[in-house]
């Protein structure tokens, strides 16, 4: 395999507000190859967004970040502002859940796109406007010319997310971090935006990290999936392998907890308990208190990363060989 586009090693993030210390991300290793689509799933507080905010130096000062995030030989952690600015928005762009809070409400959207073009590609005047029109076209905004002079509040949530994607594309990034890009949108609009993202990736060869809590969204849109729990990656695998033969009890539990739209209705297998608070993490395996297969060792010793197949790893003491550790649920009704 060629050298990865972005390589993360031992990334940890601590928040300390003086009263209590919380470890939000704990020793994350991950590689993103050029042109690859990787899904990052986990529940709220699992550290999936913080991982990438830390990588791009977007966290407030009270966050202590350690480890390495390399792109093209440069380490972004602790890098100077000048270095970071050459990467942020240019080589790695990021879009967020709520587009309307990311756009400036008092500037016309055209100006916000041309601003990104000036910043990242040094374009001005006519050239910038022409390029903005092309970007609007690329992200499927109809009647682009007139839309350039609209304000964010005049657009729907779906259109605003298209504007955000246009701004992200302005720097011609090699990697797009899409942090819950469709969570705030309605189902039919979500389908439009996901289709748009996959079309853009086909056209530009851009890599993407899709951060989502929705396993369905991830399953349909990425090649490889990383599952995070309480600040650690507990399993990573190619999409199909992960959904067909999940090896980590947490992944198995998440899949069993999902209702489906087809097939017989079963009682859902709920994972007992709740996600631990980041200032009160269990020692050993962090999933042990909720895991039906946990033994004494799990409560003391952090599990090693077990290689199951090439590109498939799970952090569990036991090799469950794809057998679910959760009790089988009989069909309801």
């Amino acid at each position: 395999m060629a050298a990865p586009l972005v390589s993360i090693r031992g990334l940890s993030v601590d928040f300390d507000d003086g009263r209590r210390a919380a470890r939000a991300v704990d020793g994350v290793d991950a590689d993103i190859a050029a042109g690859e689509a990787v899904g990052l799933v986990g529940e709220s507080g699992s550290g999936k967004s913080v991982t990438w905010l830390a990588a791009l130096g977007l966290l407030p000062n009270r966050a202590r970040v350690s480890g390495e995030v390399r792109i093209g030989g440069m380490n972004l952690i602790g890098a100077e502002r000048r270095v970071l600015e050459g990467v942020r928005g240019k080589r790695i762009a990021m879009i967020f859940q709520d587009p309307s809070s990311c756009l400036n409400p008092v500037h016309r959207i055209g100006r916000q796109v041309t601003e990104a073009l000036r910043l990242h590609r040094g374009m001005d005047g006519r050239a910038a406007e022409a390029e903005a029109l092309r970007l609007f076209d690329q992200v499927g905004i109809a009647d682009a010319k007139r839309r350039l002079s609209d304000y964010p509040h005049q657009l729907s949530g779906g259109l605003n997310q298209r504007v955000m994607i246009a701004i992200a594309l302005a720097g011609q990034p090699e990697l797009l971090i899409a942090d819950e890009p469709t969570t705030a949108l309605d189902a039919t609009i979500q389908a439009q935006i996901l289709l748009l993202l996959s079309r853009i990736r086909r056209e530009t060869g851009m890599a993407m990290v899709l951060i989502s809590h929705d396993l369905g969204v991830v399953a349909e849109n990425v090649d490889r999936v990383c599952v995070m729990y309480a600040g650690r990656i507990v399993e990573q695998a190619p999409g199909e392998a992960l959904f067909d033969t999940p090896h980590h009890p947490y992944t198995q539990g998440l899949l069993a907890a999902l209702p489906t739209l087809t097939g017989p209705r079963r009682r859902l297998a709920a994972i007992p308990g709740s996600v631990p608070e980041p200032w009160n993490l269990p020692v050993g395996c962090r999933f042990a208190p909720r895991c039906p297969a946990a033994e004494e060792r799990c409560r003391h010793e952090a599990p090693p990363r077990r290689v199951i197949a090439p590109a498939h790893q799970a952090a569990c003491h036991f090799d469950v060989a794809g057998q679910s550790v959760w009790p089988a649920q009989e069909a309801a009704e």
Partner: peptide
């Protein structure tokens, strides 16, 4: 039909009916 087909699924890939425009 569009609503149902817009639901991302873990299993088989289904034919999509993607609506244009907003409500």
């Amino acid at each position: 039909r569009a609503l149902v087909s817009a639901i991302p699924s873990l299993g088989e890939k289904r034919e999509r009916l993607i609506l244009s425009g907003d409500p």
